[in-house]
Nucleic acid binder design. Sequence first.
DNA 1: GACGCCGATTTTGAATACAAAATTGCAGCC
DNA 2: GGCTGCAATTTTGTATTCAAAATCGGCGTC
Lengths: 239, 239
Amino acid sequence: MSATDPSGTLGDTAARGFYPEMVYQRLRLDILNATFEPGTILRQQELAERYQVSRVPLREAMTRLTAEGMLILRPRRGYAVISLEPDQIVEVFELRAVIEEHAGYVAARARTKDDVRRLDALIVAMEALDPASARYVDDWSSLNYDFHVCLVGSTRRERLARTAAALRDTVEPYIRIESRLTGDMKHAEREHREIAQAFKAGDATSLAALCRQHVEHTAQRLLRQIRQRSAATSPTHLS
Amino acid sequence: MSATDPSGTLGDTAARGFYPEMVYQRLRLDILNATFEPGTILRQQELAERYQVSRVPLREAMTRLTAEGMLILRPRRGYAVISLEPDQIVEVFELRAVIEEHAGYVAARARTKDDVRRLDALIVAMEALDPASARYVDDWSSLNYDFHVCLVGSTRRERLARTAAALRDTVEPYIRIESRLTGDMKHAEREHREIAQAFKAGDATSLAALCRQHVEHTAQRLLRQIRQRSAATSPTHLS
DNA sequence: GACGCCGATTTTGAATACAAAATTGCAGCC
DNA sequence: GGCTGCAATTTTGTATTCAAAATCGGCGTC
């Protein structure tokens, strides 16, 4: 799976100058970063100009993102960034828990020395970031994303990696939005170190459990934040 | 999730006369039925004529199927029906085992009386088919497909259903090809009855285990057939 | 006889053009 | 004041068109 094709949907060619792929990558990042917030309706003309292509390759990228669950299409109305209710976020995390537990189990057995080095390097990079920097949360999120890619990629199972990525992508905007508000990455970093340890040791049972817990804890933190914030935003009926 | 939108990728509208959706449905069935066998290169002009649309909506359908893993795109070369090595088939079934076990657990708790009736009806319909009929395997496969849709649909979890469907779809052509060769559906029918029983009883633990086993057994039967057949086809090196 | 090169043909990718549906804004009415 | 209906505008979906890349086939050469 090449670096420019994280979802592994293309064949073997490098696909230089293949517009749909490039637009897909850029639009995908814009959604993950919540540059286009959940619920945003995406005007085709506008986006085509943003990415400097015609509507044709743009629509191909949107179709792909729709199939992956990051966009929703209402025919003749347009595409919109998927907006998830708390219930749906829970659903995605439950599925992720099941799948990434499995991924952890497989990864502990299939991983190479190189995988171990890469994962460690990512942890070092994350912990080396300056929490006071303006880009802190975004940089951290990007590395954290790579951390998960590295982990499931170590399974050497294309389909598993794709499935896990698609699910992660749908909740990633929510995680980033809340991360920006809290700025607290320490909980995740502790869990990452535990995961890296079991990963290096090749302890499949432990790694599976840790991966599941990591997903569950992430869900818990996220949902707590969302509920707190929605309680604060809508003053409820007792004004 | 509407009957015309099994993958749940569209919004709420009925999408009348929306070509990409129609073409998607038809092409998808043609792949599931192995009308286009794994590895087949799909010529766009030819297919557009087959489905009576221009290449534009056809390509949209193909993009979607590519994202779902049923096609593969090699840019500037064309789309082809995905062709899986035995290893990859194993991978998909392992993932399915994990996911459908989870689905069984959830379904046993979320299912309605109507779901139970529908599942039972499907079993009755399957067992009522005439094994001597020319259409037997195809009709049975179609009902079997609905059986699984009903089961995971009973979880009321869109995302889970979509994920499970996408994985099933990639191996379905192989199952149908082998089913046509053997014509033996009895093993699956016995397992279906056990599943329906736990489903009706709402026994989450049993249903989860049965779903996992059903997937595993299907994989075992399929792979045994494939290996037998490939051994018979290629006479190996000892001529 | 096999291999490689070069032109003709096919096929895909992308832009443009057009048609149809949805949205917007405004006027008139209750 | 708010609602309804209609026209103008916008926006999407689809066909057509064109350009570029890949494939195919024949020819010559080794």
